[in-house]
Design a protein around this nucleic acid. Structure first.
Lengths: 214, 214
DNA sequence: TAAGTTACAAAATATGTAACTTGTAACCAC
DNA sequence: GTGGTTACAAGTTACATATTTTGTAACTTA
C-alpha cells in the first residue's frame, strides 16, 4: 500500500493534473518537478516511480489535454445534410477548435506545438485518427474510394494548412479567416467533383477546356 | 573625396557584400558591425555615414538578396500555353525557388524570415509585387476581373501556404511536395472555373448538385 | 567640407559562479 | 515488496560581473 494512501493510477492522475495547473500558472518553460511534487505532497524523486522522466510527465499532460480538448472525432453538426457539407463543417470546426485553444490555452498549445515538432507517438496517433475520420467523410461524399480516400484527405489537409498548422494559427489567431476557409474548401470539393464528372459527361466539357488541358 | 577613395555608393555596396559574406560565415546572429568594418577597412562608426543603424544595413543586405534570389517577377516558362498552366507554373516555380533558398542559403533565408515577421517595407513591397503578378495571371485566365482578381489571388496564395510559408518550407524542405502542389492548384482552378460555368449552364448542373447546395 | 577616426556612454552579450533542477541509488516505511 | 525518502552528482538556469557592441559627438584628414 502506497505511503500516500493513493493507488498508482490515482497518484499519476494527480501528478498530471498538478502539472497542468502549474503549466497554466507559470508557463511551459517554468514547470519544475520539485514544485509539482510539493503540490501533491511527495518528493520530486517519487514522480519517477510513475513517469520515466520529466518529458514523460509532460507528454502525459499534453496527451491528456489533446484527448480532452481536441477530440480526435471532430463533432460535425448533424443538421448540415450533404456529404460535402459535412467535410466543410469538419474543417470549420477544426479551425474554430484550434483557434480557440491557441487563444484560450496558450501554454498548453505551446506544449502541443513542441510535441508535434518532435513527432511524439501520441501526436502521430492523434493525427492518424483525424485523417481516418476525414477519409471516411471523403468516401461518404463519393470523392474517392479505398486508399485514394486517404490520399484525397491528405491533399485537403495540406491545402488548408493555413487554417490548422500551429505556427500559422498562432500568427493569425486574431483574424477570423473562416470565410476564406469555407471558400477554399468549396473550391477544392468542386474541383474534385468536376474532375470526376468531366470524365462521365464529355458533352459538358467545353466551358472547362482550359483546365482539361492541364 | 572620401578617404577610402571610393564613392559613397561603392562603399555602401562593399559594406553590403561584406555583411552578406559574414552572415553566411558566422550566421545571422553573430554579424558584428566591427567585423564588417574591419573587413572593408574602415571603422565601425564609418558605416553610419551610409546606413542609419545596424538594422538598416541588415535590411539592405536582405533586400538585395531578395531582389537577386527572389525576383518579384517569377519567371514562368513561355512554353506552357494555357493561362491556367501559367498560374500552375507560377506556383511551382515559387515553390522550387523557396525550397532551394531554404536549403542552400539558410542564414539569408533566416534574415528574410525575420524581416517578414517584422513587416519590413521592402518585404511588403515585394509581396505586393508578387500578388500583382498573380492577379494579372488570374485575370488573363478569366478567373476574375478587377478587384476580385486580387481577392482570388490571395485565396490561391493562402490555399498554397504549405508550399511557400517560411516555417512550413523549413519543416518540409527535405521532401518534394511538387506533385501535391500541382494537384491542389489544379483542383482550385477547376473549382473556380466550374463555379463560373455552373452559373452559365444550369443544364449541366445535375452531377454537381451536392456542391451546388453549399 | 565630406568622409573618415577616436573616444566614450549606454546597451547588449558573454562568461564565471552560485543556486537550482533532474535523475539515480541507497535506504526506509508500511 | 511496493512505494516512498534522503543524499548526492551531473546538468541547467539565474544572476552578477566583465566584455563587447552599438550609436553618437568631437575631432581629423584629404
Amino acid at each position: 500500500m502506497p505511503r500516500t494512501g493513493l493507488p498508482a493510477d490515482q497518484l499519476k492522475k494527480k501528478a498530471i493534473d498538478a502539472t497542468l495547473a502549474r503549466m497554466r500558472l507559470v508557463g511551459f518553460d517554468k514547470v519544475r518537478l520539485s514544485d509539482v511534487a510539493r503540490d501533491i505532497g511527495v518528493s520530486h524523486a517519487a514522480l519517477y516511480a510513475h513517469f520515466t522522466d520529466k518529458a514523460a510527465l509532460l507528454d502525459a499532460v499534453t496527451a491528456q489535454w489533446l484527448q480532452a480538448s481536441h477530440a480526435a472525432a471532430i463533432p460535425v453538426t448533424e443538421g448540415n445534410g450533404t456529404p460535402d457539407g459535412q467535410i466543410l463543417e469538419w474543417f470549420v470546426t477544426l479551425y474554430r477548435m484550434k483557434r480557440a485553444r491557441a487563444i484560450d490555452d496558450p501554454e498548453l498549445y505551446r506544449a502541443f506545438d513542441i510535441a508535434s515538432a518532435l513527432d511524439k507517438p501520441f501526436v502521430i496517433a492523434h493525427l492518424k485518427s483525424r485523417m481516418d475520420q476525414l477519409s471516411s467523410l471523403v468516401m461518404t461524399a463519393g470523392l474517392a474510394d479505398g486508399p485514394d480516400a486517404l490520399q484525397t484527405a491528405n491533399l485537403l489537409y495540406r491545402a488548408t494548412a493555413a487554417f490548422h498548422h500551429p505556427t500559422l494559427i498562432a500568427q493569425t489567431a486574431q483574424d477570423d479567416l473562416e470565410p476564406e476557409l469555407r471558400r477554399i474548401v468549396e473550391l477544392l470539393l468542386r474541383g474534385i467533383h468536376e474532375h470526376s464528372s468531366s470524365r462521365d459527361q464529355d458533352s459538358c466539357g467545353d466551358p472547362n477546356s482550359r483546365t482539361a488541358n492541364l
